[in-house]
Nucleic acid binder design. Sequence first.
DNA 1: CTTTTTTGCACAATCGATGGTGCAATGAAT
DNA 2: ATTCATTGCACCATCGATTGTGCAAAAAAG
Lengths: 352, 352
Amino acid sequence: MTDTGKKKATIYDLSVLSGSSPSTVSAVLNGSWRKRRIKEATATLIQGLAVDHGYTANLQARGLRSSRSGLVGLLLPVYDNRYFSSMAQSFEAEVRSRGQCPVVVSACRDPEEERQVVETLISYSIDELFIAGATDPDGVHDVCEKAGLRHVNIDLPGTKAPSVISDNYGGARMLTQAIIERALADGPVPPEEIYLFGGRDDHASRERIRGFRDVKRAMLGGDPDACIRPTGYSPGMTARAFEAFYADHGKLPRGFFVNSSINLEGLMRFLAQHPHETFADIVVGCYDYDPFGSFLPFPVFMIRQDSEAMITKGFEILGTSRAPAVTHLVPPMLVPPRTALTGPLDALKDIE
Amino acid sequence: MTDTGKKKATIYDLSVLSGSSPSTVSAVLNGSWRKRRIKEATATLIQGLAVDHGYTANLQARGLRSSRSGLVGLLLPVYDNRYFSSMAQSFEAEVRSRGQCPVVVSACRDPEEERQVVETLISYSIDELFIAGATDPDGVHDVCEKAGLRHVNIDLPGTKAPSVISDNYGGARMLTQAIIERALADGPVPPEEIYLFGGRDDHASRERIRGFRDVKRAMLGGDPDACIRPTGYSPGMTARAFEAFYADHGKLPRGFFVNSSINLEGLMRFLAQHPHETFADIVVGCYDYDPFGSFLPFPVFMIRQDSEAMITKGFEILGTSRAPAVTHLVPPMLVPPRTALTGPLDALKDIE
DNA sequence: CTTTTTTGCACAATCGATGGTGCAATGAAT
DNA sequence: ATTCATTGCACCATCGATTGTGCAAAAAAG
């Protein structure tokens, strides 16, 4: 309130006001004053002035000088689904609790964009980077490496940096088994009635497909590759795959595994085009959890990936210097139909 | 590739390599070289060197000098729901297309946190700020004002800065009417069968409640205030409100208006505790769109708020200097049950 | 062949904070 | 009273880019 001017106070302003030198002011305000043997009285005086004048450090200047910024980056493919937005939420909380500033950016699954965005972050001297769901983790790694930026892959692994990912194979096995068991409860199920839709040629998709195939073969036999439809990640393409199946068979498969919640949106688009009653007897599994997806008018098993644990593990890895480029698996959780899990939002205010 | 070293090249490195002065290099690399009458040949030479050595400007240094950063901030209450994550997605795209760098941060609906986060952003000299869904927009305004930071409110209006918000009253009217008409299709509806759940004492909630009340009174009569349950925004509290109603009446209301998708999660928590069949005949309206919420096993009307238009309008306002602190309404859209809208994700790669 | 104009660039101050170094004043030890 | 150690702080170079200013050399005008 004492400060009526438009410009922000700097250490030089406080230096004049306090009669101390700028370096003394700096030391007091960044906490290194004990080490610099500043008198307690001097420190108190300056701190008081700082409060009065609403001083806040210019973090660009600090960053320039110290070539660190206090920023921690999270590179996301997209915001607009529950898995990644929930990850962003956990990330924010974790970074804040460490007294740093989270910066979340998305790169739209475009390898070139990924590298550019990271270049930009590096230009701001970010201290650490979480690379989540990158299309080209190793490409991003090279960029980080050159700048000496510590980084870790989340969700999709790279070969050149440590990675923390969901146990896609294990999760896919659980999910496939749940789908098939549920379908079997109503009578025999021929193998050609169990499908997988979505995903593309990335590590996660491959592992999920492998898990699906192994469990399906073990439980039902049949040609394991016949019923797999990798459509990419777009809802539009996924919907087309459902339409194609429907055109051929006059119905959807008895049970199917959907690679992600984004692909599950493709199912919604398909459903919007067809009367509801036709599909009362399908069993769906989705490798992602969404609280509304869990309550659709047919059984939907979901896999809830533990993004919070991944973030925590990521920080742990970044904490250990010279971490080897190994991949850590985080077990996901099978969520039965009609389940409302709590999420990071529940940690917020407004609860009482 | 030519650059094998660990440290990033600076204009001084290029200055030595090219035999020009640092200021010339700077001018060439930031595009102001024509204005500074640098020879085309010199420019080409330096640009070539820059590419060879993988030069990228240190944006902290640039920001320090020019007291602008190229950063545009978006302050969000939370990431973890479709409305805000979709807003973040649109925001990213828009900011990128303007050659700036988006920074998205969340403040968890905590007024103190909001101000602190904005202080931090200001310390990085961000150029513009979008304040979305702030609990205390005017408090944030004061902080921005003091720093001379251009800003605009989105979603929840303030009194001291221009605001762009959803037409909550109009949207609530549409939604309420849709709920009641749908309920009436199956027979008469007493006014005490139509409720509103969720929201708290903010502008959006008040307007929505007003719209609900006006339409309900006009269509059904009855005491307009008896059936309103403002539970705050948490899923947990919303679920409790449903439980309380259920304990009293042995069922849910025939039709009800849910204030937001976060509140709708509270309904899921309630449903998880009760057998599905009991609620086959409810009609729900939700002030927010969620692609999975639209396909729940009962009719769900939704309001899709046009976050993209709000962002665009926000930029337009920030573009006009000295914009007055007026509130702009963006009309939302009523989405009938079982509708799968396309979103920002559809603009991505991977479509073909 | 001068004088004027234009071209092309170098110089140096500056943004705000940091941290190594040096030095006066004070107190303790001899 | 002299020497030495400690305390408390000021000085200054530095981080990398931007930008106003000034001044040669080249080109145009006379």
